[in-house]
Nucleic acid binder design. Structure first.
Length: 285
DNA sequence: TCCCAGGACTACT
DNA sequence: AGTAGTCCTGGG
């Protein structure tokens, strides 16, 4: 799929397997919101209004020098048609893919993803969005687009200024101390998320679990949504419900569900998880 | 007013 | 190895 320039930004001509609603509502990101005919949001300090019209996806506000950024962010070089073909051999996935046929897994920034998913623990999506937004307003950089204010998610350097109290005031609750400790441990122990990204899925998960406030589910989300570990299988309540309903007994532990998912879907476990999550959530399974 | 949703921690076994 | 109780916040 090719990205080209037009007068208001960038567009993807004949975008296949790409539905903004599926992409932005499948639980992987917190900074995109419904706007007019699509979604408006910010990724890595770049604001855009993304919508689909006919077969084209428009990235209004996208700059010519960011063509490669958006190509990578939206994972445009991957053939989701082929992935869906393979997953549809599974009866449940066949149904789930019908619902979320336009899902793509975004390539988000590891630091933002780590902090955002620490906030996601025992929390609901609107609350998570609010907290991430407050942190960005307080510690990120302001960007004006369409006469509206947007704020980039703060860098490690920007967030090191945050006290536990300030983080709490952003609406993070008991997770404030986890965020504070994560930021300061990364700085003090000179931890490189990019280096963790080079490890295999199990080794990288182990490293992420060393952060307080990061359990198996949060670690798997970071691995899948920012480190291209597509064999990760994050198990949240929705995935738990749908797995227990269609594949396993109702009392199977989260750990076993994770093991089952990874074994059954292999290198496509992460994609399967996204289709299942979206299906379960949309249908209130 | 209470109850519920939503993962990880701690302190146990 | 697995599990009960607790953490915070907004909405019904």
């Amino acid at each position: 799929m090719d990205i080209r320039k037009y007068d208001k930004g960038l567009f993807i001509e004949n975008a296949v397997d790409f539905e903004p609603e599926h992409i932005f509502e499948c639980g992987q990101c917190f900074r995109w919101n419904r706007f007019e005919n699509g979604y408006i949001g910010i990724a890595a300090g770049r604001v855009a209004y993304v919508y689909k019209k006919d077969d084209n996806v428009y990235i209004e506000g996208g700059k010519e020098e960011d063509i490669e950024f958006w190509r990578k962010y939206f994972d445009l070089d991957r053939d989701y048609g082929k992935i869906k073909e393979r997953l549809k051999e599974d009866e449940v996935l066949n149904e789930a893919v019908e619902h979320g046929y336009g899902i793509r897994i975004l390539k988000q920034e590891p630091f933002e993803t780590l902090i955002s998913f620490i906030i996601s623990a025992n929390n609901r999506i609107p609350m998570i969005k609010k907290a991430v937004d407050n942190i960005s307003k307080r510690f990120g950089k302001k960007i004006i687009f369409k006469d509206m204010e947007f704020y980039s998610f703060p860098s490690l350097e920007e967030l090191k200024e945050a006290s536990v109290d300030e983080l709490e005031k952003c609406g993070t609750g008991f997770r404030a101390v986890y965020i504070y400790e994560a930021v300061n441990r990364i700085l003090k122990e000179n931890i490189s998320l990019d280096e963790i990204m080079t490890l295999d899925t199990d080794a990288a998960q182990e490293r992420l679990l060393e952060f307080k406030g990061v359990g198996p589910k949060v670690a798997d989300c970071v691995l899948l949504f920012s480190m291209q570990k597509y064999d990760a299988f994050p198990v949240d309540v929705w995935v738990k419900r749908i797995m227990q309903k269609f594949y396993l007994a109702p009392d199977v532990s989260l750990k076993r569900i994770r093991e089952f998912g990874r074994q059954r879907f292999g290198d496509l476990a992460g994609f399967a998880q996204q289709y299942l999550f979206y299906y379960a959530r949309e249908n209130r399974v």
